[in-house]
């Protein structure tokens, strides 16, 4: 019991330390707006992959549609701002609702007809592409030209003149995403999602309404991604159909898988490492030889998946157990 408590304390201290580092990063980078944007981008992927963990990691549904929800959130919030001068602080919530509504519309028939595994993955993947075409052709809202958001430099319109506030907004979202994950993990829904993610039939037989559980997970994930989309639009200062990016949606799922399915901080870890490496490579060699950073990135990805299929978070778990606690060692002795 004492050991467990100590463990809790070390864990909280570690998290606190990380949070402090995260909070002071923009101060260190302060003068270099480009670096702040890079770090914010890394955080964005951290947020998305962490949220993906709800549907993909816990519920085991390989969702490849994250940028569909991001785009819907961005377009809702952005269009409201352009057309009606509506504050994005509210707009992003509405964006989340639109994204969640769309997810429900798609999710109900998908789960009703028991579309699973690769077919679910491909459907969600196709949705992103469908939305991209729809918004390109829907000239009233989208269209092929970027629509810029007005009111640069206004707090009310969430249009800051520096990237630093967006960084903190993204950090806030990340904390929410982690919190939601942590909370779900500890409650009935989390146990149910994990169970159905592993074996849907066994879950059904234990009294789990798998369809409604999956829908709950999907709505939770799409709503928060939609909210993120509102901030995303304001950060870039425009909305464009290219926000519906199939390739990047797949990347989010890959981060979730590589990080470690079902491990709360796994996707975040993968995002920090992989997106960090990618952005670093892009910044350092991208200009000279286009594509080279992607070659290196994809090789790293393949190697990680081949040698740590359970996720890179498990490396950290091993290290953590060795350094901070003796429980792991004792357990092995018992076995």
């Amino acid at each position: 019991m004492e050991q467990k408590k100590n463990n809790q304390v070390t864990k909280s201290l570690l998290w606190l330390l990380l949070l402090i580092i995260a909070v002071i990063i923009p101060w260190i980078l302060g003068s270099n707006q480009y670096s702040v944007l890079l770090v914010t981008t890394v955080l964005l992927y951290g947020v998305m992959a962490t949220l993906w963990n709800i549907i993909g990691g816990l519920a085991g549904q390989l969702d490849l549609g994250s940028f569909a929800y991001l785009g819907l959130g961005a377009f809702t919030s952005g269009t409201l701002l352009i057309r009606y001068n509506f504050t994005p602080w509210m707009g992003m919530i509405l964006g989340g609702l639109v994204a969640a509504g769309f997810a429900l519309l798609i999710g109900i028939p998908l789960f009703r007809f028991r579309i699973r595994e690769v077919w679910y993955a491909l459907t969600t993947c196709a949705l992103v592409e469908i939305l991209k075409v729809v918004f390109t052709m829907w000239e009233k809202v989208g269209g092929p030209v970027e629509r810029y958001l007005p009111h640069y430099g206004s707090l009310y319109h969430m249009r800051f003149s520096s990237y630093i506030p967006y960084y903190y907004l993204m950090l806030g979202l990340l904390l929410i995403a982690l919190g939601v994950n942590y909370r779900i993990n500890k409650t009935r829904l989390g146990y149910y999602l994990k169970a159905l993610g592993e074996d849907e039939i066994a879950a059904e037989v234990l009294g789990i309404d798998t369809r409604s559980c999956k829908l709950k997970a999907l709505v939770c994930y799409s709503f928060l991604i939609g909210v993120t989309g509102g901030i995303y639009a304001n950060m870039y200062g425009y909305i464009h159909p290219s926000f519906f990016d199939g390739q990047e949606s797949i990347k989010v799922a890959i981060l979730g898988i590589v990080g470690g399915r079902g491990i709360t901080y796994g996707p975040l870890l993968a995002a920090l490492l992989l997106v960090g490496i990618q952005e670093f490579l892009r910044a350092s060699i991208g200009g000279d030889v286009s594509g080279l950073y992607l070659v290196i990135y994809s090789v790293i990805l393949i190697v990680v998946v081949l040698f740590r299929p359970k996720g890179i978070a498990t490396i950290f778990q091993d290290v953590y157990q060795r350094v901070f606690s003796r429980r792991g060692v004792e357990k092995k002795n018992v076995q």
Partner: peptide
């Protein structure tokens, strides 16, 4: 690649082929 992931969860197979996809795309771009 593939034979090493046959016994893993299907998401791992997808992850590895997506890695391959990114690799091919990047190589051709290069």
């Amino acid at each position: 690649l593939i034979s090493r992931t046959l016994r893993e969860h299907y998401t791992i197979q997808i992850a590895i082929t997506v890695g391959l996809m990114t690799f091919l795309r990047a190589i051709t771009q290069l």
